[in-house]
Design a protein around this nucleic acid. Sequence first.
DNA 1: CTGAAAGCGCTTACAG
DNA 2: CTGAAAGCGCTTACAG
Lengths: 333, 333
Amino acid sequence: MRDVADRAGVGLATVSRVINGKPGVAADLVERVNGAARDLGYRHDVTASSLRRADRRTGTIALVLEDVANPFSSLLHRAVGDAARAESVLVLTGSSDEQPERERELIDTFTLRQVDGLIVVPTGGADAELAAVRRQGTPIVCVDRLVELDQVDTVTVDNREGARAAVRRLLDLGHRRVAFLGDMASIWTARERHAGYLEAHAGTGAAVDERFVRREIRSADAAERAIREILGADEPPTAVFAAQNLLTIGAVRALQRLGLQDRVALIGFDDFPLADMLCPGVSVVAQDPAEIGLIAARLLLGRIGDPDRRPARHVVVPTTYIPRGSGEIPPGR
Amino acid sequence: MRDVADRAGVGLATVSRVINGKPGVAADLVERVNGAARDLGYRHDVTASSLRRADRRTGTIALVLEDVANPFSSLLHRAVGDAARAESVLVLTGSSDEQPERERELIDTFTLRQVDGLIVVPTGGADAELAAVRRQGTPIVCVDRLVELDQVDTVTVDNREGARAAVRRLLDLGHRRVAFLGDMASIWTARERHAGYLEAHAGTGAAVDERFVRREIRSADAAERAIREILGADEPPTAVFAAQNLLTIGAVRALQRLGLQDRVALIGFDDFPLADMLCPGVSVVAQDPAEIGLIAARLLLGRIGDPDRRPARHVVVPTTYIPRGSGEIPPGR
DNA sequence: CTGAAAGCGCTTACAG
DNA sequence: CTGAAAGCGCTTACAG
């Protein structure tokens, strides 16, 4: 920048003004500075500029996901990336693997790098750290899972209602014994979906049979084992509600292995690629990760641009039931 | 940092030395500085520190992918992220969507942010920019696709051989008419896989029938249409080789719709989730994106740590054929 | 072993 | 409208 100023025969301040597009510089000087910059192949150092800048913005946000390689996460990532790009902000990413310790570590390194804001899928075990960072002034939006913190926005889906409606469909079809497969109860979505499962039964003839309710299931393999076990009982369930995509896949695998895929109904929560191409197609309560990501990014970018203290917002994105066959199997077939 | 120095009653330089773990500071001073830092809740500003640092390293690398939401990319991303994390470096990501213009833009913004190195899946249309950046001193490793540039390492798979072996299997099974579905010829992998398809035919009785060779196919939908067309011909192919995962999915869809999934053989290049659960299971030439990512990250991190000018390396990661049924269907069934 | 000073590449009051 | 000076938070020769 020094060199540009010299070559253009102006002061440093003027170069800075021109580069940043600030008004009030004589046209011929603008011309000269731009010319000099071009001749010298000048490259503006964004990092250095943020150091002295009044707002100290770095033009970077961070995204803390459960796992960047999981389809839900990567679609969310894509949407956030696109929204950020439109405002020339870059995005750093990390995977917490559902470990609070890891989440804390990520939050720490990202804030140390002076990110302008944070979008996080909270494990639930690092809420205190999130609150502290927020108090420090860094805007945060939590996605996928509700967290009640001062000044932090959240965007989730109506898990309870989505689950309730899906399970109610099964009951309305005549199923009396519907199994439940769920993730760790420490995860908000897992609790909500379980609650929806219970609510669906209320007021119907069907009772929840605790033998068929399996929670704390963490992988497709575990889900597969659970289903095999459950279906080995006498008077086994005639339908399954799998409250998470990996668990749905495990359930499909179990049913296929047992040759029961056309006899036992199945509905999963969260869509997954190729669900429509299995036989039968797997019916799901679909979320829209791209929409969630877009809304989260807008909320965050909005807070960054305008730091006045509006109260936290909680936006709920609707789910969609997609019938593909597996959820439409009647009992006793 | 000023505050820490004051509270510890030492100079700024000493604080810097302690924070950076440099040797040669009296034990009691180390103690005092750490104590003061703790008391004051001091947070080291990594960004500012890189400004004056001799090596000017920012501890950040960038990853330019085709699309962060595509499974191949996101697995690669995950591996790179893990390797980077082990050395406390952060990773910025962007999606080029196979557009050279977009790739150039990403390279530009990332280098402007002073990243220490770049891992890119090159579109092929921004090689000049990559070369320029490399000459500027920034280490680069290209993944998935070969590019011949000075001092840039590449890690790819042996596409040609993987494709050749797969198609040869089909021919050995007795198939005489094997269709080919490929991506844009501007992409190195698409050209190589096509070459492998041709090589497989050499010296066998089977001749390549150009009516059944479709290149420049960009999506699952286009692949589905192409297959329906091809299978409408008289004396249609009895087997299909799909040279990319989206195209494989399109092919499966077409075969399912036509009810031919158990009659026409299919092998895809690149594995995809749930390929094993379709009926029949889809046989593929699998790549190992995690391994590719890990190797790329190591190469890059190695170059960053030790900038002496070793010649570029090209590492080739093997592919694996996974038989699942669809590739094992004999002709005329 | 330690600290005062200079400086990384930039922005921002402050005079003019 | 413009420029010289100070300073963002740090590191690094350079003396001592």
